[in-house]
Design a protein around this nucleic acid. Structure first.
Lengths: 146, 146
DNA sequence: GAAAATCCCAAGTGATTTAGTCGGATTTGG
DNA sequence: CCAAATCCGACTAAATCACTTGGGATTTTC
């Protein structure tokens, strides 16, 4: 049940973006990678996914970088994790877009269990916004910069 | 965030055991494997882990098989999943026996997120017993056998 | 208009995990 | 003794993970 680095780095990167794109200036990937200690090239792949999903915008060329595509309180961590990890489901039969190919789905006791786990995870990640993470960060670290 | 087949098959097998070891007669692995459509040899590996963890007992020789080591209402599905999958944690830094090797653990915002996810999953799997699963099964499937 | 900064894209790779298979040894009831 | 069963350890094909490599395209600064 571990998240891969995709989801973990993705959340870190997005929180970093929320903290550092004050106003409208794009944040270069290198800065995020350096601060979060993530391989720049690898992070590039991850953020490409986030861009395609409409969670970040990019500005090309020198002085370019990335920006959140929406306000921090409009992005929940579930959006990030689902984009990078695929659906957040303990078993395929309870994945969001999954065809119910399990013929005994209606009377499967384990399915009910997977649904409960699925729902509990999703209720957490869908209720926490990037703004919440930023607030938490500021509470923990005072006024200092990240 | 998917569970592997280890955890999924393990829970299925344990529910099967709870349903079929009425009284004290051991259930042969082959029966469980057939009913649950799991490779017998593979299930053998999984149940070996459950035996070492003290969740099932075995009876060797002809007419042998497996039994729950405790009453169905004393075994929670979290026990099974943790035994077979290792700790149920979205990130290593919030795993139960993990040394906190992350030096910024105290002021890490993502860690707080992983903890919330971890806690929510564990509160589900630690609150559902095998007896609950059996009751659910009987409710869904009437008095028929599995 | 050249150089630098930056994003964009696709393919390759070593290590690990997954989901088993295979072959046999041991124990026990009939 | 033999068939039914657990026990045990090694092997493996395929997938996934966590990157790396190697370019190209676009924009800004000088």
């Amino acid at each position: 049940m571990r998240l891969s680095t995709k989801g973990r780095y993705g959340v870190k990167a997005m929180v970093d973006l929320a903290l550092h794109s004050g106003g409208e200036q794009p944040v270069p990937l290198k800065d995020i990678a350096d601060r979060q200690e993530i391989s720049e090239h690898y992070l590039e792949q991850l953020i490409a996914g986030l861009r395609k999903a409409g969670l970040v915008k990019s500005v090309r060329g020198a002085q370019g970088g990335y920006l959140l595509a929406q306000a921090p309180d409009a992005i929940v961590v579930g959006d990030i994790i689902r984009t990078l990890e695929g659906t957040i489901a303990p078993a395929d039969c309870v994945a969001e877009g999954a065809p119910v190919n399990c013929e005994r789905a209606d009377n499967c006791v384990t399915r009910i269990l997977w649904e409960k786990i699925h729902d509990s995870i999703n209720s957490v990640v869908n209720s926490i916004t990037l703004q919440d993470m930023v607030n938490e960060y500021k509470r923990l670290n005072g006024q200092e910069s990240m």
